[in-house]
Design a protein around this nucleic acid. Structure first.
Length: 250
DNA sequence: ACACATGTTCAGCG
DNA sequence: CCGCTGAACATGTG
């Protein structure tokens, strides 16, 4: 549901609300629970499409909301409907993750990965060019492939490709170096601008997604800022919005 | 009422 | 190995 910029804002809000509180209980936890109980929460941050909860002893919990997961903060002991797992703190506050599909995931001490986060310095022009080289996949598929770069979802991939004026159907390996460099800049710009807008307009959200500023990925929107008709098609089983302003490299 | 929506994993095909 | 497709999950939002 929410994408990288939404999750970034959620993490900041959760940190404001929960930092320093001691963990009292974790529902649906295995034997690893002992590594976390009675530990004060030190930091909440985002990695890829996951939220990370860092505790004082260095152990981390990873939370992935998948398509339908939702964060719910409450002051009660009884968890809301569709709760998949929850963190209960010593002061009585409860952070529950609900998901009617039961797909949201809680991972104790997630394995470190070499795949760069979209907003990290590791996701560089050189790295992107290396990933593009020799790939015959559609560029949109590559951008949303979490094994290549973490954090870009369906909606923001469309916004990024519009910003870079590259067609989502372009063959990744056929994108010339200057366009690839522009694509990298577009990734950073679109995501950072979205974080800024969401944290300014909705600093206290921990659920839902803010999409009103999107230039092309918006159902029912007819024209891009450049005045061209917004087309839609399916890539990777998901709706893709684009315009003729975007160059297709084949 | 009704169309539309976000992510991941795995199996199977060519 | 590469890339594509479909299935599974069974609700919320505007």
């Amino acid at each position: 549901m929410p994408e990288l910029p939404d999750l970034e804002v959620f993490s900041k809000h959760l940190q404001r609300k929960l930092k320093g509180k001691k963990l009292k209980a974790i529902s649906k936890a295995g034997a690893w629970k002992k590594d976390f109980l009675r530990q004060p929460l030190q930091k909440v941050y985002r990695e890829g499409k996951e939220l990370r909860f860092l505790f004082k002893n260095g152990h981390k919990l990873g939370v992935h909301l998948m398509l339908h997961g939702k964060l719910v903060l409450a002051d009660t002991d009884d968890p809301p409907p569709h709760t998949v797992f929850s963190l209960q703190f010593a002061d009585g506050s409860l952070l529950a993750v609900t998901d009617w599909q039961k797909k949201a995931r809680l991972t104790p001490d997630p394995e470190p990965t070499n795949v760069p986060d979209a907003l990290s310095a590791d996701f560089s022009s050189a790295y992107l060019k290396q990933q593009l080289e020799g790939s015959r996949a559609a560029i949109k598929k590559l951008l949303t492939d979490q094994h290549k770069v973490r954090g870009i979802g369906n909606a923001y991939a469309d916004e990024i490709l519009y910003e870079a004026r590259i067609s989502p159907f372009s063959k990744a390996g056929q994108i010339p170096p200057d366009a690839a460099a522009k694509l990298l800049r577009s990734v950073k710009k679109v995501l950072k601008d979205a974080v800024k807008k969401i944290s300014k307009d909705h600093p206290d959200i921990i659920a839902g997604e803010v999409r009103d500023f999107m230039k092309v990925h918006k159902h029912g929107k007819e024209k891009s800022p450049g005045g061209k008709r917004i087309e839609h098609a399916e890539i990777n089983g998901r709706t893709t919005y684009y315009t003729s302003e975007q160059v297709e490299y084949q």
